[in-house]
Design a protein around this nucleic acid. Structure first.
Ligand SMILES: [Mn+2]
Ligand SMILES: [Mn+2]
Ligand SMILES: [Mn+2]
Ligand SMILES: [Mn+2]
Lengths: 158, 158
DNA sequence: CCCAATATGTAGCTTAAGCTACGTTTTAGG
DNA sequence: CCTAAAACGTAGCTTAAGCTACATATTGGG
């Protein structure tokens, strides 16, 4: 193997995907992994501001379970990417771009969580898994999830 | 905020989780992220060996869409963690530990993919999303997925 | 109104994952 | 049976995400 130029490869059952298709899929997962942390930060910042009025770097660090320099480092990345600003001793704020991202991320988080619960996943496992899964859910999947939930809700209501 | 020691915080609707609970969830997601790559490698190695007889570093690199030094680096990590061995120009091989991990990972991958398809996610999106989601699915969720699929299959068969 | 507790900032390190540019070793086809 | 292509290896760089250890700055309660 590895030397012959893989001629055509008819898709028989259980066969591997083509190299190109598989590389595309892995590439998407890599991209998602690299934006996952940004998404978690903007989502958490939005949640903190909504429910407590402010998002302090220290609080963010504690809720994420990381050291405060780590949080400050990542917040610096948020600033570089024009997602957030900071006023020392006043908190972290989202830019327009950051708020737009936060809205999408929060909606996705809720939807993923609801689907897991609807599938019968116990609450705490659903909450924990959703925190990782959410970053890998495409628009196509979101659409399917939302349709599925509409179905469940109708069934439950009848 | 951030100064008062958060006294009790009764869980009203839409409230944030406790700091401890949230930190635990984020911590799990971080752990999953850090093992995701190892899992993808052992899974891919197992797939390649099964369907082509061998897993060459170059092929692994191509299928992952990374440069071959990147693949070689990560394979070095697999060796360090006692998941694989390599024989130059002969391919990469899984240790017992590696094969055990591969079995679990492949089963999980199949299950996640089937659930996405059962929920109505289009094939290619399901394949791509599964590649990322699989690393964040707990045993509890796997169990729920498997029960859900049994239900769907019965419904479909009737 | 001052000072200790809290919050923030900086320095400097580690590991992982990615890259390009070269260099070396095998292998297989003519 | 020889040599060019393919496979493999190494060096050296970058960025991100994590850490600890200190240093500085604010603030609120007494
Ligand atoms: Mn998350
Ligand atoms: Mn989230
Ligand atoms: Mn994967
Ligand atoms: Mn997989």
């Amino acid at each position: 193997m590895s030397r012959k130029a893989s001629p055509a490869r008819k898709p028989s059952p259980h066969a591997l995907p083509t190299e190109q298709a598989q590389a595309r899929r892995f590439g998407k997962a890599r991209t998602a992994r690299s934006t996952a942390i940004l998404e978690d930060y903007v989502e958490l910042i939005a949640d903190l501001i909504e429910s407590t009025g402010e998002a302090r770097a220290t609080d963010i660090a504690r809720r994420l379970g990381v050291s405060h320099p780590t949080a400050i480092n990542t917040i610096a990345r948020l600033k570089r990417e024009d997602l957030a600003t900071a006023r020392p001793y006043r908190g972290i704020f989202l830019t327009e771009k950051g708020e737009a991202l936060a809205r999408r991320v929060r909606a996705r988080h809720r939807l993923v969580l609801e689907v897991l619960l609807a599938l019968g996943v116990p609450k705490e496992a659903a909450e924990a898994d959703a925190e990782g899964i959410e970053h890998h859910v495409s628009e196509a999947s979101l659409k399917a999830f939302s349709d599925f939930l509409k179905g469940s809700r109708i069934k439950k209501a009848s």
